[in-house]
Design a protein around this nucleic acid. Sequence first.
RNA 1: GUGCCCGUAGCUCAAUGGCAGAGCACUUGAUUGUGGAUCAAGGGGUUGUGGGUUCGAAACCCAUCGGGCACCCCA
Length: 435
Amino acid sequence: MSNKPQNVKGMRDHLPQAMLLRQYIISTLTGVFERYGFEPLSTPVVEHAETLEGKLGEDEKLIYRFEDHGGRRLALRYDQTVPLARVVAQYGGELAPRMPWRRYAIGQSYRGERNQKGRYREFWQADVDIVGSASPLADAEIVAVLTDGLSALGFPEFTTMLNHRQVIGGIARVSGLDEGAAGGVYRAIDKLDKIGPDGVRQALLDFGVSAEAAGRILSLVLLEGSAEGVLKELSGQLATDERALAALDNLRAIITALGELGVPASRYTVAPRLARGLSYYTGLVFEAITPIWPEGAILGGGRYDELIGLFSGKAVPTVGLAFGIDRLHDVMEALNLGPRPATTAHVFVSIFGEAQLAESLQLARELRAAGVNVVTSLEVGNVGKQFKEADRKGVPLVLVLGPDDVARGEVVIKELASGNQRSIARSAVVQELMK
RNA sequence: GUGCCCGUAGCUCAAUGGCAGAGCACUUGAUUGUGGAUCAAGGGGUUGUGGGUUCGAAACCCAUCGGGCACCCCA
């Protein structure tokens, strides 16, 4: 530790190669969010510990807590959702004209888990929420943003699994379970993809669920196929449970709106097995999955109509989702998606010799003023070495202003990848490179 | 948070108790108007860190920091 510095466990450095892709992801998603009229919000990563406490259920043990110099009990934010709730309560009047408020927030959150691939103690999320609307249109719009976002990033294959908290609740109730037992049952169900139907059956029996009830739960949870078909089957099976029927109506309305928003039916399924851990969800829940990332969801979200009311005292219906930037990055890396520039500079301006120094820097200035990313040599002379530097750094173009070129009023532009070079008029260079 | 595996040059790895090495990368030169290929030379290490065992430790033991995997949970 003393000689070789190391990062803090689970907290990662992002070197330029990684950052270029991460910034692409962030700017692409930002573009999608703003096309839907979402507005940016930024809050500190540090909150009062009590702001985060009492919102997350068992996950609270993962919160980073500490005391500051003044003895205040503080915590690093666990997600962007609870801070959003705080902001809505704190600035209610100021935000009122924006309601229903579409807001996005991109930044890091912290969870004290043991890290694994795709799971870090500091991680970035792009969080998108619609605050102050209970309309199924809002739920559908969030799913549409999800679909557009992944499409804009170039994901070829992904599916969003949709479910509703009261469908899961209904399954538990018609199987004769009380609400108290439901939590463990949801967790068992959520593992279906990992442990298989028999594993879930065993887990249910271990929870004390009767064999008959376990069989019934399994048959419901295993339903799949077209969204329409699954909804119809669930309606029959859950006919005695009013809340579940209302939930199914809600899902139908959301799916109808999805169609109107242009989300193709191939992009989503109704999946009764989807539970999701966060305790604050009250309605729609969803997760996007992609076949090449079996480790888990690359994003997830849902409706949480009560969380924001915990601070403000009145219910503020809200639906939202979080893109996991780190997982998106890992998947895109694996699939070779997105642009892969080696560096930010597009043009390397070499400096032939002392006599050409001013002339070369002047050209660089003009290019920058025109919006071209330019790096200049910091060494004067030895053009061969300068070419080597440009090549090593991955800058695509090298400009040479040698004595002969300057005398002719020309500049040599060489494209390193192809090796092609040509000489063009000095006066035309800026125009040429702006293309 | 629990369990298991791992940490040697910038990177990938070798050396299993007895001289710390290779490939790639990097620097310089062959090449004073042009990178990549080739050839030659060179720099680079307290073997993550601290302690212990031993005549002798990269190797064995303990602790610690970091990485990976499975639980758990999730983005």
